[in-house]
Nucleic acid binder design. Structure first.
Lengths: 342, 342
DNA sequence: CTGAAAGCGCTTACAG
DNA sequence: CTGAAAGCGCTTACAG
């Protein structure tokens, strides 16, 4: 003796159970529940009550089998470890979370074999579309095999220009950064950044150089200081730059971590920031940028927004639209490391 | 005229297509593809070749409808923003990624309504089980409603002791940290940590206090310095501690970010670390702990492992096992902020 | 307004 | 060893 509602014991209730309880056919129950077809109001109510009573949840598999649409999407990342995937993933979640589509998360770990496996599994599950998130901006080979659903590449573009790729404008990001330093009255600007094998490093440097050139200026040291993306390089490079070029009054760093190292060294050397030297980072990584001394001005590439646009674009593509590739600008986030001279 | 293999144009191939092409019944095709039943070897080969030719991928929805198993699991997080969910999520991905189960990712944003929606959607999709990941260690209300599949709570335990919760031993973590400082020969140990409304803060402090007591010692300042989880608090608290208790020779910080702030202040004050004062953090957040000066010793709560265990436990529960709740220990990760006196 | 029937793509007894 | 048939849970014409 329990208080459970009637019905076949221990079985997930089906439409048939609901129909039986409401005393109608499954066809009618289906129409009532979906608000489709002309169903008498009192009948609808009866069905709805029965469904409620049984905690009926329509089987999405059966629906998907019938309609060919699963309301399901695959999100393929290449590394969850890296920070870039996470905000993008959040944005995608955002775009879909409110609606009716659920997201399969797969991490290929940068391994092509594993990626193929995941794609296979996703296609077996009949996802309506795929979002491929990379963590580098160097173009990647498109998904192998014949993919019968729309695919949107995010951050890391597909090497095939016919694919839909949503990317970040790193050249523009470099421009933004240098424009800001110029606006702060800086004229002797150095660029300390990551390894030049990364296209992101090269693009940002290119944007920076072009902007300086347009202002009739050149980089301090005449070239970017390529190194690695971490604080240690930021510290070492900053020391070198200041020693060789004491006139430096602005430093554009390729990442917030580098910038953090730069700030530490400037502090060690007793150079006032932003007074003597303004510093700007890249990524706007809250945990790093918002807690340094002084807090770090940075370029934010709006990754969450990028992810949410990817979700919308994929949704549109599933609906038959033909979205095009697009590059998105970053934005300047001002903090105290770059205040203009008072 | 194309080179496409024969078959109904532009339609995802079905078992019927494969069977037709191989000249057998769907029943036989099914058996051949699944390696089930006695199928003549040459027949099997013929079927497999046909499947290959058509790039046939079995429809998992149809299979799920039949078997009642979808090979699908829901992962419910409460905030992707926070760092804690990510490694857990990676661990879960790990546990399932290799096998045949796919993971639905849902972020409830700490909103109960949204959580209910997501659970509803997941149950409609007939997931075989659910993993609920929290970002705080204070027990949370169990999932509302009648959940017909196994549920494993991770990091944040369910308030219902009958549920399966996999948690982290923060009391033990506090103990580990202080034991290490004691092992380094420290006797005047302070504890600077986050807000006491967090159970994690209270638990770590409790473990620290107990360990000190067992050694006949008491915390510098006679109580933990509760504050907030960030660097600013670390800086401020360290200054206060050093001023009031210059004899302090070890500082256990409730997070790596706090520790980072502590290190900065000690540096400003000219206190040698680890010589004069040893410092240990908590979380082993690589980006923070591995790039400070000196690099930070920390307690790692093995979150990725926790996630992977959660995956395995859920898998077992789906198979009919009855896993029990469990608490997992952290581990000490030595770096240079706590070297023993030479 | 309501219901019987067919069918989505597959698997599983059950005959042959 | 192979295949015809039933059925998983639902929706959609089509009759009544």
């Amino acid at each position: 003796m329990t208080n459970e509602p009637e019905g076949p014991a221990n079985r997930t209730p089906t439409l048939t159970d609901v129909a039986k309880l409401a005393g109608v056919s499954v066809a009618t129950a289906s129409k009532a529940i979906n608000g489709r077809g002309e169903v008498r109001a009192t009948t609808r109510v009866r069905v709805l009550e029965a469904a409620e009573l049984l905690s009926f949840a329509p089987n999405a598999l059966a629906r998907g089998l019938l309609s060919g649409r699963t309301g399901t999407v695959g999100l393929l990342t290449s590394d969850l470890e890296g920070r870039f995937s996470i905000p993008i993933l959040m944005g995608v979640e955002d775009a879909f979370g409110a609606g009716q589509v659920s997201v399969f998360l797969c991490d290929a770990r940068g391994d092509a074999i594993r990626e193929k496996h995941h794609v296979q599994a996703l296609l077996s599950r009949r996802v309506d579309g795929l979002i491929v998130v990379g963590s580098r901006t160097d173009p990647r080979p498109p998904l192998a095999g014949n993919i019968p659903v729309p695919v949107v590449y995010v951050y890391d573009p597909s090497a095939d220009p016919a694919d839909i790729s949503l990317t970040v404008d790193n050249v523009g990001g470099g421009r933004l950064a240098v424009e800001h330093l110029l606006a702060c009255g800086r004229r002797n600007i150095a660029h300390i950044t990551g390894d030049a094998v990364y296209r992101a490093a090269r693009d940002r440097a290119e944007g920076a150089a072009a902007t300086l050139a347009a202002a009739g200026l050149t980089m301090v040291g005449d070239r970017p200081y390529f190194g690695s993306w971490d604080e240690a390089w930021g510290r070492a490079a900053a020391r070198m730059v200041v020693e060789r070029h004491p006139e430096v009054d602005g430093i554009f760093c390729g990442s917030d971590q580098i910038a953090r190292g730069v700030l530490e060294t400037l502090r060690d050397l007793g150079r006032d920031v932003p007074g003597t030297t303004s510093v700007i980072g890249f990524d706007n990584w809250e945990a790093i940028a918002a807690h340094s001394r002084p807090r770090l001005t940075s370029i934010d590439m709006n990754l969450k927004h990028l992810g949410s646009v990817a979700g919308q674009r994929l949704f549109a593509a599933i609906g038959g639209a033909v979205p095009t590739s697009e590059q998105f600008p970053g934005r300047l986030v001002m903090r105290e490391s770059s205040l203009p001279l008072g």
